[in-house]
Amino acid sequence: MSTVLPEQGSRIRSWVTGFRRRETLAAYGFLSPWIIGFLVFMAAPMIASLVLSLTDYDALRPANFVGMSNYQQLLLDPKVRVSLANTLIYTVMMVPGTMVIALALALLLAKVGRRSVGFFRTVFYLPVVTPKVAVGVLFLLLFNGQVGLINSALSLVGIHGPQWSTDPLWVKPGLVLMHLWAVGGTVVIYLAALKNVPRDLYEAATIDGASAWQRFRRVTLPMISGALFFTFIVETIAGLQTFDEAYAAFYGSAASATYSSDAALFYLIYLFQQAFQFLHLGYASAMAWLLFIVIIVITAIQVRLSRRFVYYEGR
């Protein structure tokens, strides 16, 4: 302790005296828009929601402190379990699907000429900028079990497609397929990573007699593992926070909400319902914090496991 405390004190002194330097003040000045934005639009609302999660609050009357009862209610609410399970199942299907499809497309793009790359990269990225609400509505049209384009295409090869939008077993796979339409962002990340793999590694592997699969397995994958890990984390978080497409397709209007099945009840949709349909903002805040904890735990596990599989050049 006696050795640590003086060190900490000197650090604090150094930090404080740093403010006397003009360049330190300038740096903080430049950072201030982000710092203010973070404090006002992130930190403060998060703290407020933590406080609200301990209250019974409907936004129309003063909050009423209820202690941990919202969190206890979370454990008893069957829809919390259903929506959390739906969200996890969707994420487990969507993340590997996105990564595999995006990597396959990126590998194809890496092989085409420089001029064509720009064109295809743009084409692949276009769905990303399509409003998700439009994608949700499109889902119902494309995936209608009787007259949808997907089942019409399947029928051409003799397959009687499933009821994507009404069968609880097929709702989530359908939404995953719809999500795969917009893998362009991940494709661009993988393409950049592939372009950075040193050519001499492939040449050396080829000279050593490595097959195409071995070069991919032993050279490409380790060299782009950083990008793969990044997208793994980002897509997992996006999956756990999925809302737009499913909400637009199944809950977006009074008519669609009437027929909504629990199979499409994702966690954030249920949270939104609790907050703005039933006016249980305290309970919804508790739900938000539960999701926060779930994401923290999953991300921590992913980071822990990444040490085995992710290769960082220079480390």
Binding site: F41, S49, F272, A275, L281, A284, A288, F292
Partner: peptide, 19 residues
């Protein structure tokens, strides 16, 4: 890790709106 803060978006939106 900043990405984690995205999950506060729904609460953020609500609170900001309520504010």
């Amino acid at each position: 890790m900043v990405r984690h803060l995205r999950l506060g978006a729904i609460v953020t939106a609500g609170v900001v709106v309520l504010a």
